[in-house]
Amino acid sequence: MTQPLVAIRSVSKTFGEFQALKQVSLDVSAGEVLCLIGASGSGKTTLLRCINQLTPVDSGGIWLDGELLGLREEGGRLHRLTERQIARQRLKTGMVFQRFNLFPHKTALENITEGPVQVQGRDRQEVRSEAMELLARVGLTAKADAYASQLSGGQQQRVAIARALAMKPMLMLFDEPTSALDPELVGEVLSVMKELARSGMTMLVVTHELGFAREVADRVVYMDHGAIVESGSSRDVLGAPREARTQAFLSAVI
């Protein structure tokens, strides 16, 4: 078996009294689209944030592209990486947030070019034309100069996806990308994500959109109380769940 792009091993995370992740292990191979489903508080968002190091893990390890994230092993001990090193590791992942988090003082185009120009130090003109291509890809060429306040939620989220893609990540993380959207705007965001999945991007998607998971996901992982309960193809997990807890969750949401 080839090396997985993401390898999560025995990751635990506690917030105060609340144990968000309990010894979670998971592999994601390159090109795979994996959907994480489960009730709120089940740890799926925390797992995603741990991969992007917005939340540091308490114990265990996450490897991305063979590189241990956030930690360095030396002399039989683990040392936390510096903020600069962590920032460099983050360049390999793109993150899309539930609440979009576009920079409101910048236009759609400026949101997309900010990272490549300021962080990666790339040529402004080159980045700009790439950003226009990305805007075209998410169907928002006409909105290049619009501010977030002038965009609908669905448009904002599509710009946010373009912003993440502009960094040329090897892994895209989606944290409930459609949960904050009005129902009629969900479709446009999902279709952008479907196109991205078809293009071969490795994607980890925390979602409540079971239709999307059924159609696009190579694998569906059901989490409950900080642990992975069931994992398999979308047909198996969503169509014929083996675990009683998965069955209960699915019958509650459908």
Binding site: L54, E83, R88, R90, T93, G94, N101, L102, F103, A164
Partner: peptide
């Protein structure tokens, strides 16, 4: 707080995020 996270997610360090994203707002 989501603005800090979005800035971090595109690889910004604390000071750059402050200068480019947080302070202008």
């Amino acid at each position: 707080a989501g603005q800090y996270e979005a800035a971090k997610a595109i690889g910004m360090g604390r000071l750059r995020a402050l200068r480019r994203i947080i302070l202008p707002q």
